[in-house]
Amino acid sequence: MTQADLTVLAEHLSNIPYFAPLSSGERHALAARAGFYTFAADEVIFLEGEKHSSLWIIEDGSVKIAKLSPEGSEYILHLLGPGGVFNDVAALDGGPTPANAIAMTLVTVWSLSPALVREVIERHPAVAQAAIETLTGRVRALNRQLEDLTLYPVLVRLARFLIAQAEDPSLSGPGITRAAIAGHLNTTPETISRVLAKLQDAGAIRFDRHRILITDRDMLRSIAAL
């Protein structure tokens, strides 16, 4: 790994809540012990239930964290872009991977071994605190997802999803497809197309070639019941 690579990772680490409390020198030392990997689009990074407890950090590209039903339909728990962190649950408790991680585009990722993560947490209480806050944030996000899936129709779920994406562009990284949106909202791509058309007819959004532009925030928030 070159010095430039280490600097890139050290910069990424400074933006990740887990490692933000570390000094620049400590982040550099951490980066020097990280692995660097590249995955092609649709390539599996790891599967659910594997004994694989590294912490992964996305440098570039998009990754989906997904579950498969026994019938083979996919539910996307998280969509992650550059700077996104995944497999922290397994990295912290040493258990099996909780879901599948699959590259959605060409992806470059860094990997920190569980021993390294544990070592940093033991040495820095501020990192332990940041890890707790990140994990509780995930619990809250999963609660919201559960609420959305059980209580709201696709129209509301999609409106909420569009707002979340617009407010954090890193979530969709180099773009998001209707199939991925459908996988995240537990519906079909055809339904997503139909509901997007309905939102466009209402004037809440507009298609501009590869952009989905939110043209009326207030209307979309109202549809999203926010």
Binding site: Q165, P169, T177, R178, S193, R206, D208, I212, I214
Partner: peptide, 30 residues
């Protein structure tokens, strides 16, 4: 032109169009 006909008709769902979701600029210069 991103008409999405290819995505819609592909029988094996091999084609997908990636979108960028964003707020339109407040003016008509969106």
């Amino acid at each position: 032109t991103y008409c999405a006909q290819c995505e819609t008709l592909c029988p094996t769902r091999a084609i997908a169009l990636p979108y960028l979701i964003m707020y339109a600029a407040p003016s008509s210069a969106s």
